[in-house]
Nucleic acid binder design. Structure first.
Lengths: 121, 121
DNA sequence: TTGATAGTTCGTAATAACAGAACTTGCGAA
DNA sequence: TTCGCAAGTTCTGTTATTACGAACTATCAA
């Protein structure tokens, strides 16, 4: 099994981050991980897409987030403990990531609301 | 030829924007278009990638930017006049896009500088 | 040693991106 | 008018990505 590798923050790119976030599962994982108070294991997100997603797929999403430089992962036993690299990211990219996640959360809140409205009719 | 269609701003998504920007050519087109003072035609960006890129490819990139909701295009004769939808986007997504483009520009500035440094050795 | 759990890797089938060629459209000159 | 050119578009085949299932590794605990 390959050792976990994390890019140096100076090698992290804007395009890379945007690509990683362009997938609905990945941006959601990141948003939840950012909101969590402590590290989370991969399998905590099995049901994140509504449907239960295969663990091979989940594993690859985490690998992309990690190799993009968005999260840091550490093996503890059989588990992988994940956390965002938010401090470093903020230093390097300013408020970019916060504003992306903020817009994402607001978008979801709006979608939820309009779904409710529809239901009420 | 299909008529040009622009999504309503309420149907524009964060993920869609991030996907569009995850391509180096597209984010660059958007950044330059945002910096331009007036509308620009597609072929103004033929050389944007260093190498001259095929116009079929360029056409498709513009279509993606348009269908994502990032730019507005208007046919004038044989030309397509393009501009960003920055005002609407700002209203809908707050500072998100500005902070992305800001980070992108800063990243390029940094890359240029370190390339110069290398050369000087 | 065996079983169970967490995650990874590999093979493949579906999907999307890219670029060349042929096509449409609108102009401006002859 | 008609010809030719310039700007984009669409079509098509090739190439690269993605997602999933199945088989695998690694660790822990009974």
């Amino acid at each position: 099994m390959k050792p976990l590798s994390h890019p140096k923050m100076e090698d992290v790119t804007v395009e890379g981050i945007l690509y990683a976030f362009s997938n609905p599962v990945r941006i959601r994982i990141y948003a939840e991980l950012a909101a969590a108070e402590c590290t989370q294991i991969c399998s905590a997100y099995r049901d994140i897409a509504g449907t239960q997603l295969p663990k091979s797929t989940l594993s690859q999403h985490f690998a992309i987030l990690r190799e993009t430089g968005l999260i840091r992962s550490e093996r503890k036993g059989t588990e992988l403990h994940n956390a965002t690299r938010c401090d470093e990211l903020k230093e390097r990219f300013g408020g970019m990531i916060e504003s992306i996640i903020g817009a994402y959360i607001e978008q979801n809140a709006r979608a939820k609301k309009s779904a409710k409205k529809k239901k009420r009719k």
